[in-house]
Design a protein around this nucleic acid. Structure first.
Lengths: 208, 208
DNA sequence: TTATGGGCATAACACTGTTATGACGGGGGA
DNA sequence: TCCCCCGTCATAACAGTGTTATGCCCATAA
């Protein structure tokens, strides 16, 4: 039951955050949850911001794991779509965590550090690899792969972010709408509507 | 000096929010700022969430004003670009306010209500009108204007949001990068790269 | 066996939103 | 004119927050 007390705190914090929302994540609630006192947060993390930092680092790691489950195929655009779907799914599974990782939502005065953002961007390297292959295959317009990836990420983040804040209705969030959105992203990056649609069909089959 | 105490509170709150950040916006700081007591917040707004609500309503109104300064021309795509630039500029002028209006950043337990979101979406109607004209002119693919507007808004919000959270470097945020981003959005909506570039040049001239 | 130091429980401090209380003051009715 | 009423808001208190100082316990090392 009792392993590394650090890990136990991080897990309890992540659980509170995803199940009860950001306002329920307090040092005293954590002490109650783990059966210790608030001092544990300070001996192991130096304060609440340090703990939140550990939680989002774990979040980045879990996101990287989910993205890594997408295997390369001979259709790089379809691979990109699968990555986008996995990214969106991860955000939906832990909305509050996603809001802290990418949305600027602050808990107990925590603020993203330069290092945090560097790690966050690093988890997107698999996407950049997929985009590189899209360019090499002539599907996307020739350009700096990282620049294209950043654009696509911004666009996907915007959709996810507005979904999480409730600005999009249930019908706006349907699978059909999401596929149309992805198609537009690919077309904006240089793909033809026809080929993009075909890759969406392929990606759809590839996902169980 | 002393007009409507409601308005005075809202203005002081907006000032604190934009100048000192969300953590400085407290009932006691407001009382200090306006020379009264914390009770003013409760008699006029029923609590801090009510005051925050009044602040973001004011924010929506100011955003609508800024968008309304963009006049229709005979190039609807250029008009859309000007609207996007005005939207982005508004967000940059009051980042913390934008984060509460669209980013899901919560202050003192405030949460966006359905009514808030309805008002937020209503401020984007000028964008939908521009998009409608883009479709009528044959520049954008035939589709539901509101759906296309929503997509473009999501994409623009994603860029703005990640700019505000610091995920994009100074070079990523250059004017050239922003124009390339806008061009990709237009191409994704159905415009040709050549026409989109031309409209960007037009919009650039139109902005002082 | 003793000394040292990490882990953490307790209590206190400064802050937060919120509520109860009561005092002030101006407007309307008798 | 008097009086009452009600909106306004200053004060104080309560429960919650992050944080810090204190000191106790106990395991490990000498």
């Amino acid at each position: 039951m009792s392993g590394d007390p650090r890990q136990e705190l991080v897990e309890a914090a992540a659980r509170l955050l995803t199940e009860q929302g950001p306002r329920s994540l307090s040092a005293r609630a954590l002490a109650r949850e783990t059966g210790t006192s608030t001092m544990a947060v300070y001996t192991y993390f130096g304060g609440m911001p340090g703990l939140v930092r550990a939680v989002i680092r774990e979040g980045f790691a879990r996101l990287a794991e989910r993205l890594a489950t997408v295997r390369d195929s001979d259709d790089p655009v379809a691979d990109s779509f699968r990555l986008a779907a996995a990214y969106r799914r991860s955000a939906h599974l832990a909305p509050h965590l996603y809001a802290v990782m990418f949305g600027g939502s602050s808990i107990a005065g925590f603020q993203l550090s330069e290092e945090d953002r560097r790690i966050g961007l690093y988890t997107l390297r698999v996407a950049r690899d997929a985009v590189s292959r899209c360019i090499e295959a002539g599907r996307f317009r020739p350009a700096d792969p990282w620049s294209v990836t950043r654009h696509l990420w911004c666009q996907l983040h915007g959709l996810v972010s507005l979904e999480l804040t409730g600005y999009l209705t249930a019908t706006d969030r349907s699978d059909d709408e999401f596929r149309a959105y992805l198609r537009n992203l690919a077309v904006g990056a240089g793909d033809t509507p026809q080929q993009a649609e075909a890759s969406i069909a392929v990606a759809r089959k590839g996902i169980p």
